[in-house]
């Protein structure tokens, strides 16, 4: 189980994430939602250890990750929001490097990489430099790198970004499949439709604070809302979409 206890991050005194507490259970997919700038990616970076929290604790299997950060990283798979990769390496070389850095046994790892690339439809381009890859292909490399070592905790920050329909469908099933096999999956996305289908529980963040933390069905009942989208609009949307879109259209069509 992944547990966040009153996790806070401040930048120059301004809270990006404030006293965020929740649990993500093994065997379930937990959705982490919020509008742009609500603090989702900051939370993800604190969970991975890339960013140090100002206060609060992240626990994995009941142990603060700071106690054994290296041990925690062994069990972590992470797909970041932006596909930053070493683009002078080929897809295969990148995954090989990640496998080596994760100290995976040499035997079998190359085959595992080849197989992952084949399943993600990257086999033909595995020896082309990543600089030539499309956004979706880069996303696939990130996904393969996150899953290569069979992690116990999988953090996915906008994993559907740039993926084609076919791969999106595969990823959607994969997330559920991995959760069923006992992994802790924390999944952040703006695709509310996918979140609604995939996640058993959602946490909604607004201006750095948790404003909802429950199962989707419980939230629907509580807020008398027909869908996750309307729940999200009530809790986290700062603007009325209709009036803003009218104002924009008025502005651009004004002579």
């Amino acid at each position: 189980m992944l547990e966040l206890q009153r996790l806070t991050k401040r930048f120059a005194g301004i809270a990006a994430v404030e006293k965020v507490s929740f649990q993500a259970l093994a065997g379930a997919v937990t959705g982490y939602l919020g509008p742009n700038g609500s603090g989702k990616s900051t939370t993800m970076k604190m969970i991975t250890g890339l960013m140090e929290p100002t206060s609060g604790t992240v626990l994995f299997q009941g142990v603060p990750i700071s106690q054994d950060l290296l041990g925690f990283k062994r069990r972590l798979g992470y797909v970041p929001e932006e596909p930053h990769l070493y683009t002078h390496l080929t897809g295969f070389e990148y995954l090989e490097m990640v496998a080596q850095l994760r100290d995976l046994p040499e035997r079998g790892t190359r085959e595992r990489i080849e197989e992952l690339l084949r399943l993600l439809s990257l086999a033909d381009d595995r020896h082309a430099p990543i600089s030539a890859y499309s956004k979706g292909m880069r996303q696939k490399v990130l996904l393969a790198a996150a899953l290569l070592h069979n992690p116990d905790l999988i953090l996915l920050d906008e994993p559907f970004s740039g993926l084609d329909v076919g791969t999106s469908l595969v990823l959607r099933s994969l997330i559920q499949e991995l959760a069923q096999r006992g992994k802790v999956v924390l999944f952040s996305s703006h695709e509310l439709e996918i979140v609604e289908r995939v996640c058993s529980r959602v946490i909604i963040l607004h201006r750095g604070k948790v404003v909802a933390n429950d199962t989707i069905s419980a939230l629907r009942a509580l807020m008398a809302a027909p869908s996750l989208e309307s729940i999200f609009a009530q809790l986290a949307a700062d603007v009325d979409a209709g009036s803003v879109s009218r104002a924009i259209a008025d502005l651009v069509t004004r002579q």
Binding site: G49, L70, Y78, Y86, T87, M97, L101, R102
Partner: peptide, 10 residues
């Protein structure tokens, strides 16, 4: 792209 070295530092 350095994040990969930080994340995989085990």
């Amino acid at each position: 792209a350095n994040w990969v070295f930080r994340i995989t530092q085990i």
